[in-house]
Design a protein around this nucleic acid. Sequence first.
DNA 1: CGGCGGCTTGATTCGAGTCAAGAACCGTGG
DNA 2: CCACGGTTCTTGACTCGAATCAAGCCGCCG
Lengths: 259, 259
Amino acid sequence: MVGLPNPIGRNSLVPLVLKFRTLGLENEELEIVASLVKDKGRVRAGLDIIGAGNSAKHLTLLLMGVACWYKRLEDGGRQIYTFQYAGDFCDFYRYVLPERDHSVAVQALTDCSIAIIDYRDLEQALTRFPKLGLAFWRASMLDASIFRERLLNGSHRPALQRLANLLCEQLARREAIGINSAVIPLTQIDLADAAGLSVVHLNRTIQALRSLGVLAKNGHTIEVIDRKHLVNIAKFDGRYLNMPQLLSKWEIRIDSSIM
Amino acid sequence: MVGLPNPIGRNSLVPLVLKFRTLGLENEELEIVASLVKDKGRVRAGLDIIGAGNSAKHLTLLLMGVACWYKRLEDGGRQIYTFQYAGDFCDFYRYVLPERDHSVAVQALTDCSIAIIDYRDLEQALTRFPKLGLAFWRASMLDASIFRERLLNGSHRPALQRLANLLCEQLARREAIGINSAVIPLTQIDLADAAGLSVVHLNRTIQALRSLGVLAKNGHTIEVIDRKHLVNIAKFDGRYLNMPQLLSKWEIRIDSSIM
DNA sequence: CGGCGGCTTGATTCGAGTCAAGAACCGTGG
DNA sequence: CCACGGTTCTTGACTCGAATCAAGCCGCCG
């Protein structure tokens, strides 16, 4: 039941540990979860980490990089449901609802490194330490929380606010795992597919944010230089992300005088 | 741990049992779940079943009627995330993520009757019968599945298909719990808030479906009279609903010659 | 009978999609 | 080192679906 065959650098597991700590696990339980994880290797940007389909013998965990849950549309388009970062599990749904024919897939958007937890090891751990079950349940509930927010965001909000909201979420989630860079390593295509906007319009929206001084003007990267303003435009309220550590930074709406 | 104080008619629990059977529970476990349920009473259409906020000492279960998960928007609007039917739990999220400040609420759209499961009883049952935990996890995963589908549906699809898709889901979910009526007891306002369309435009879309012969022409009710055509317009694929019993009816896209 | 919530209709506006073409950037191989 | 092809990004012109505004209608309930 221990992950000895493929030990993992402790550092790679920091995001996972941070996340599961906020989900209510204590030190010993965190050790246990960490001990289940086995290294799996790297996936190049653009490739699928999880294909559509439903057979699997292990959970997959993102250790590094950015990935997305998505679905291919009839017309060839791509709907991105959510982005994923280090510490996120990519395929809970296959473990929990194995008999379903899942049309969801997970794609690496940057080069990623991934790890796995064998179902066998997971099950043993779950029966021995029932509290883990609740933590995993919580983790997937959080995903659902994010879906709801994306759903909300997609309906009824103008493009500027939509994009701002999406960017806020990414910044917050990256900070939660210790990534404080203001650069969001996604292409405009990725953002468009996640925001439900056409690439052309997304591009124009980005330019609007640039000219508002919210994003840096150097093309070819998305760099947030005025976070307060961004939060304001987005009317972002990050509480759905369940990040107590970051609440003070994201929860409060800056007063509306700025915009 | 038994629900003796407020016994419930067996019939009221049929939808719950049907649902949890498809989630993998066997007879004895179903008995146990059923035994936890205590009657709570009725809620009139329009009132909240679950208010926003995060304190609770019990799960809430819908026994009869239609409800919705929704969120109030800044501008007074209402975003409906999903509809709920008999057998659905309304507030898993409060049990699983109690510390979160939840801005989600649940509203009765028709007169509803509801029941509860005390957290205390639930926890006892979960520790004694770990398989229940997986079933509950599955149930909330299914909700997430529905959110994803709504998210997909809201983006990028024209109003006609959007509405058709939404209606298909409701028909399928109602059938799954034994309601075979072709009438969907929702107002156009409810449908608009769920589809992310304005009431005006939703109304026009309904009229489009009526003149296509998909919906009955008598105003003031939504009655599906040509289900095949509806499925076709929606390009509905109900597999995300995890309803093996109904698959044959909903899974397959009718060939495109009709439309 | 009056009022109110839900439904219907028309006119107008506007945000975002689409089409099309060009520019900047990136990796690769000669 | 540079030429190349393929992404990604940018810009402009045009179209169209859906929101909004406004008003009238219908049916129900008190």
